Computed example of a mutant assay.
Amino acid sequence: MTGPRFALAVAATLLATPVLATQGFAQDYPTKPVRIVVPFGAGGPADVTARLLGNILQDKFGQPFVIENRTGAGGVIGTVEAVKSPPDGYTLLMMSNTQTANESLMPQRKYELMRDLVPIAPVNYSDLVIVVHPSVPAKTLAEFIALAKSQPGKLNYASSGQGTPYHMAGELFKSMAGIDIVHVPYRNSGEARSGVIGGQVQMMIDAVTTMAPNVGEGQVRALATTGKTRSSVLPNVPTASEAGVPGYEATIWLGLMAPAGTPRPIIDKLNAAVNEAVKRPEIVKLWAEQGAVPMSMTPEEFDKYLRGDIVKWANVVKQFADKPQ
């Protein structure tokens, strides 16, 4: 075959080659270790969940899924590490509503979430719990609010950094309760947790999944949880809405993203694997015992969810949150 027909055939082959190569690459993926960047400290919900999910994916795909904690700047340092990585499916980001809040809370960051990363799948969400050190003379949330109002600016609350769910939940609580308490940002949730357990700060709003054991051991006193209904792991603790702040609600959710440009077949392969993992009966049971609830979406659904969360927190930041430090 020669002439125009030959030229058209060659052109069609050349156009199809990248698509076929990408599909073949995705079928073989992964052929080497995959890195999951966790922009938060060891021992927190994101770290624990990433390690559990990494083990499941490693068993499924036969390649190591290595967890790499890159902490600092309210999750920005780890996010930048993922953003600048090759878009080949071998670097993933375990993220949370920290990243969606940072879109408005930290305007000087060197990336845009929905431009520089692509959604893979959500993983789970959990309620938070409002706790105080046992030395605080408040047995209920209403008593803590009254105490804070009697001493404006004297009480402190810990978080794992600017823009984290614990910080945003704290600012929302301050506004809705009409109190003035001081935000003390730590480098990660583990240090913040130690701060309130050690009595360096009076209060913290932390994930039920990580703080419930400390409540059970009497290291902190739980005043309220932050969901619409009572937590299954702390059923005797009232919700904040029940305890004196009507309508207050806050959660922490986790999800996976990848650098923009990661081939769509790889995104789809990972999405299917994550959705299958979070629906496993043993995982559902484990998370229920810890106070976490699985989430399952397509990449498009997760994209919509992320964009909605960005708008939600932009409104909160505009009205309530501290200015970036």
Rank of each mutant, 00 (worst) to 15 (best):
T31V: 07
Q319R: 14
K174D: 07
T79W: 09
V48G: 02
L256T: 05
T17R: 11
A272V: 06
S241Q: 11
V237Y: 02
M211I: 15
V316I: 15
T71F: 04
P246D: 09
G255R: 06
P246R: 11
S160A: 14
A146L: 09
G3P: 08
Y248M: 05
P86M: 12
G291V: 07
L172G: 00
M204A: 14
T31G: 03
T17P: 02
P238G: 05
G218P: 06
S85F: 07
L92K: 01
A9R: 10
R5A: 14
G161C: 09
A288W: 06
M257W: 05
N236M: 14
G62H: 14
E191S: 12
G161Y: 05
I310C: 02
R230W: 05
L92Y: 02
A82R: 00
S194F: 01
F6L: 14
D116E: 11
F6M: 12
N315I: 01
P246M: 11
G170P: 02
Y29E: 05
E191Y: 11
T79K: 07
A222F: 02
S135Q: 13
H183T: 01
P299K: 08
K149R: 15
S160C: 08
I205S: 02
V83G: 04
Y248Q: 01
P265D: 00
F65W: 00
D268A: 15
G308T: 07
P107G: 11
F302R: 03
A169D: 03
L105T: 06
A101S: 08
I77L: 13
G89Y: 08
V118K: 10
G44W: 05
N124T: 07
I179G: 09
